[in-house]
Design a protein around this nucleic acid. Sequence first.
RNA 1: UCCUCGGUAGCUCAAUGGUAGAGCAUCCGGCUGUUAACCGGAGGGUUGUAAGUUCGAAUCUUACCCGAGGAGCCA
Length: 439
Amino acid sequence: MSEETAASATPWIRIHEAGTRIGQSVEIRGWVTHRRSSGKIQFLVVRDGSGEMQCVAGVRDLSAGQWEASQALTQESAVVLRGTLKADARQVGGVELGIQSLEVISLAPEYPITPKEHGVDYLMDHRHLWLRSPRQQAILRIRAEIISAFRDFMNGEGFVLVDAPIFTPSACEGTTTLFETQYFDDKAYLTQSGQLYMEAAAMAFGRVYCLGPAFRAEKSKTRRHLIEFWMMEPEWAFATLPDVIALEERLLVATVARVLERRGEDLKVIERDTTRLARVQGPFPRIHYDDAVKMLHAAGIPFEYGNDFGAPDETELSNRYDTPIFVTHYPAAIKAFYMEPDPANPQLSLSCDCLAPEGYGEIVGGGQRMSSLDLLTQRIDQHGLPQSAFEWYKDLRRYGSVPHAGFGIGVERTLAWIAGLDHVRESIAFPRMLYRLTP
RNA sequence: UCCUCGGUAGCUCAAUGGUAGAGCAUCCGGCUGUUAACCGGAGGGUUGUAAGUUCGAAUCUUACCCGAGGAGCCA
């Protein structure tokens, strides 16, 4: 039998399905993560992106050339292995490959990331390689699950995906710092939020959402901040503040449930305490800003009414509950210009932030949008923004203006909370942070 | 931008004014069931940069560079 025939007869499988193929001859294509040798027998731990499996070869199992090649294997060398799968209770996954043939695709030189410990700076400098570690893969798989859950949930609620532009002519909110870039002979800015565009789309489709990157040139340097982060922003015509809070609640419950259901193995890899996630069931507390301030005062925290909550304030509030909490009716002065005033107290706004448990802070921000053209025009002036930049946005109030509401939910912060991460830098493949643009 | 902490071998760290070390990684040798395998040996350094104090500086002083954690702001 020629080698080509043998190759075609041996199915290439992925490691995660090895357990269902005990006794079969298979081919594995992957990278060596560990090699242990005991003279005439050696153990290769190989990963292929779907899992890891120990593969074992004795000196008599391979040709002399293959045996020699196998002894020279280094961490992260790429190999194609063929052999027979056998049950072995000692192994993770209960399977082991008895190697009968080994082909070295590429021999790696000394690999920078060893199985030992490394510092954050070093790992971030090698982020392109760090992604190969089991923990990082688990986190990014959970990220992918969260994004799928977001999309499936919104689609199920009848929302239409409408993507927002990345290049924008001016600030969406005018408050935070923008990244400026050249747009032929003009200046353009990287988007901070797709919301204003979603408001336009909501007046077309009724219910819409976008999911994409946002860029904030803020010199923020904390575990909760990225310069480039991903956000989903639903916008819902004819909806009010309570409607959109209920929507957020259903979204979060559905997302956590789905991660628990489908990414249990990954949660185990990162050693997440899932009992806390299992308690994330609706309804979540709704706390009026006035009451939140009273709670802080009762806890002996000096806080001036009218201010926004700082990170320690948010932690104080959210630590009282197992679930995320909604804080509503923030003072209009500390919220964006487009927030609808509270009819019961015009100093307050129909706004809502959702604070994650365990001190993860704000993961969702949203509220009801202003529907009056006159008031909107006034607020744009009050915020020192140019009316001309918002003429198209004001058209939405000229032609069939309706109450509408929406929110933005941060993918990385939601993931950091669900996965129990210490820092959002692990929540995206290639984080963009203050002082870090590479790799 | 501000506050705090840090930078010593490829990596993680030790050495607190007196010859710069260990573990891992790498290379060589040994071992047929290892699990961050183990055992023996070897190579590996302008102590972030620059200046200063001192007989003598990784160690003390100053400036700068780089990073980490936090604040503000926000998802």
